[in-house]
Amino acid sequence: MAAEGHGPLAQFEIKTLIPLKMGEIDVSFTNSALFMSLTLVLVTLFLVLGMRQRALIPGRWQSMAEMSYEFVANLLRDTVGNEGRKYFPFVFTLFMFILFGNMLGMIPYSFTFTSHVIVTFAMALTVFVGVTILGFVKHGLHFFSFFVPPGVSVVLWPLMIPIEIISYLSRPISLSVRLFANLTAGHTMLKVFAGFIISLGVVGGVLPFAFVVALTGLELLIAFLQAYVFTILTCFYINDALHLH
């Protein structure tokens, strides 16, 4: 137990804080739920309190709130166009939820809920199912023409259509595994090198310590980048569903 408590993977353990049951289902409030709730509160406070002055010329905080709004709005407009406005609240929520989740995970002793594949897979599956429904609502059965690549001769259809279908169906997996694997690998590596500092002592530990400092910077970048990648891929999928190719 003691060895496991300090292992590189111990940080990913789900710890029940308040045991709860809903019928037969376990809905205990865990450390994961705690950080999800923290994300919910922090994002809401960040935006609502940041905008409380409604200044024409924004201060620093308001600027940051506006920047996050415009960042996602531009992302959506550039990839989907003006029809994408309807999905802006969802895409924005997705971005802020993942970004704050990743960033909170960078705080030592905290928990990174985006490093759990079940969480990222649930989000990716929501995007996938939502986008597929959107495609069918928008285009009806014509949506299947999405699997026929344009400009490919009929001879190649038996080859191309299965490839397209497989690549479409693998979207939720690649989307979720990308986020989960990046976060898990990064945090594990940080922990491993942090362990070297202790085992190598004061003199030998300088090198891994410097490495951990550099890695922390890289992980901050990855925390943002993976939120961005998840969001922009969601935008691409929405665009595919709306415009087919």
Binding site: I14, S28, A33, M36, V119, M123
Partner: peptide, 14 residues
């Protein structure tokens, strides 16, 4: 065994 509570709170918070 950790999936159910995670999914539940993910849905709630999201």
């Amino acid at each position: 065994s950790t999936f159910a509570p995670q999914l539940f709170w993910l849905v709630v918070t999201f």
